[in-house]
Write a protein that binds this DNA or RNA. Sequence first.
DNA 1: GCATTAACCACAG
DNA 2: CTGTGGTTAATGC
Length: 226
Amino acid sequence: MKHSKCAACKVISAAARSLSRAELQLLEHNSVSVDFKRGELIFKQGSFSLNIAYLRSGIAKIHMTGLPGERILRIVRAPAYLGLVSALGDRINQFSATALEEATVCFIDASVFKEFICSNGKFGYEIIEDLCRNELFDHQRYTLQSQKRVPGVIAETLLCLADKIYGRDQFVFPLTRRELGDMVGTSRETVSRVLSGLARDRIIDFADREFTILDKKRLKQISEKG
DNA sequence: GCATTAACCACAG
DNA sequence: CTGTGGTTAATGC
């Protein structure tokens, strides 16, 4: 655990960039940076949200436990705020965050953060913009997903990971089949079957967690056709 | 009705 | 944990 040097931070958020020198100092004195190993819980659903989590490096999953079981809401790549919605919208975290690989997270005192929103318009605007982008993205994803059959949703998820998270067509996906199932709302068995089907058709290739997209065009077709 | 889709169960590796 | 096969229930043509 260490205090972070906010002014020198290379992955400072767009919002924090608009803070004055004095405000940055205040931020620095009210935040700590913590390292996480793969699989470690960053914050837990049901606990108080007394601070804002900012993912500085690594990849994390946002997930919540519902009545049927676990649901992965999204995969987040640094730099990004984790669960702002929960931190600002409720005193209690409505979901959990877990590191999927080595990660660094800055925890910021929520009251200081809220003070910035009130006093610094540019800061507040950047935060709102971030929230809006996420909400639009989620609405779109959930609407499309609910109208697709499982192979379509899995194809879309793979494409999304390649484009938005990893930025290349080959990546080591750190989720189990069960978790991928939790992400697309299906069973682990169906995930297995769909993936081996895609591999049989040489659309993707995978060995364990390592995925390669071989035929992006056909994967897109499957994703769109649903 | 018949075909398709996907969940649930079970068992093996 | 993962892959596969059998069974079953829901839905569409």
